[in-house]
């Protein structure tokens, strides 16, 4: 029975991903190679980490537009501390993660305590984080050389880097928190009817703030993997990252209205987006065709989710009824 639930929950997204893999596999001679998959595995971690947080934020009916800029700020700070201030990598990493958490705290406090819509607050922090990234980097690209290589070079056994394994662990932990802890269940409940949850005597204020802080911290971790993959960072690095994150989470069936979401499906959403990126680049699609196709896939995936939630089960029930 649990297998069945597992399949119905995650099966459809997984199938879409497999379809993409086979589609690109048939279009390109080199797509179905360990190198391609290992490349995608190397690109996955930053987006996955941010999507874990974004999923939680969407579940409580919020949104975080600042993740791209905060990622750029944390990555720039991280590289600056290593390259210019010559801090140890570990200490610089902690500083970068805390910086992300700080932005998350600002987002949370303004959204929850002062009741400014999260869309507005995070639009503000998007600008602030970007501006601060520019100021600390003086618009320069900061490189860190080989120092972060261990994080991203593929492990001999599984063929994927440490960063990927860390990301997968976060996905498992995130899904556990969401579906197996009281905290996670309360977040879902808050997303459906916050007033009712409060009147049931459940603390809601700090729970909601915590979601923003966790997203900030995760963005800080993502920044480290991001800088590791690029061997450096600049203030422009996070450009458009927030939109990729929201797209991946929404493809994964998380509702923008709150109250519904799944970390594992967000992970699959990230795989779909990045596979699409890699695949379209490998078949050498025209720049603008890439945009058109990516947009179409986002809409199709969400449409499929809508059908899965309402129309398809209704149809199935009707067919069963008819057979009776």
């Amino acid at each position: 029975m649990n297998t069945k639930r597992f399949l119905t929950d995650y099966g459809p997204m997984f199938v879409i991903w497999l379809i993409l893999i086979f589609l690109f596999g048939s279009l390109s001679d080199h797509f179905l190679s360990s190198r391609t998959l290992s490349t995608i595995a190397g690109q996955v971690p930053p987006l996955v980490l941010v999507c874990c947080g974004m999923t939680f934020i969407l579940i409580v009916a919020g949104i975080d537009l600042s993740v791209g800029s905060v990622l750029a700020f944390c990555a720039t700070l991280f590289c600056l501390l290593i390259a210019r201030a010559e801090w140890a990598v570990g200490v610089a990493a902690i500083a970068a993660i805390l910086a992300g958490g700080f932005f998350g705290l600002i987002n949370g406090l303004f959204t929850v305590l002062l009741r400014v819509p999260s869309f507005i607050v995070t639009l503000g922090t998007l600008k602030i984080a970007f501006g601060m990234a520019m100021l600390i980097s003086r618009s320069e690209t900061l490189t860190v050389g080989m120092k972060l290589e261990p994080l991203i070079s593929p492990l001999p056994g599984p063929g994927v880097p440490v960063s990927f394994i860390v990301a997968v662990l976060f996905v498992i932990a995130g899904q556990f928190v969401l579906s197996k802890t009281i905290y996670g269940r309360h977040l879902i409940a808050i997303g459906t009817n916050e007033s009712a949850v409060r009147l049931a005597g459940v603390e809601t204020t700090w729970k909601k703030i915590s979601v923003f802080v966790v997203t900030g911290l995760l963005t800080g971790v993502a920044a480290i993997f991001f800088a590791a993959r690029l061997g450096g960072a600049n203030a422009d690095s996070g450009n458009g990252f927030e939109l990729s994150a929201i797209a991946a989470v929404v493809i994964g069936g998380t509702s923008l209205m709150g109250g519904r979401g799944s970390i594992v499906n967000s992970f699959l959403g990230v795989l779909i987006i990045l596979t699409l990126d890699a695949g379209l680049a490998q078949v050498g699609a025209d720049e603008w065709v890439k945009h058109v196709i990516t947009g179409a896939v986002i809409i199709l995936a969400v449409l499929l989710d809508v059908l899965r939630g309402g129309v398809l089960p209704g149809l199935a029930a009707r067919i069963r009824n008819y057979k009776k």
Partner: peptide, 25 residues
Amino acid sequence: VSSQSGSWEMAKANTVAAAILSEHP
């Protein structure tokens, strides 16, 4: 053999370059 846009950006160029190296070893 291939000419694609990296949009002037480091991260985008990294993705495109990785794909090109896979496709055209």
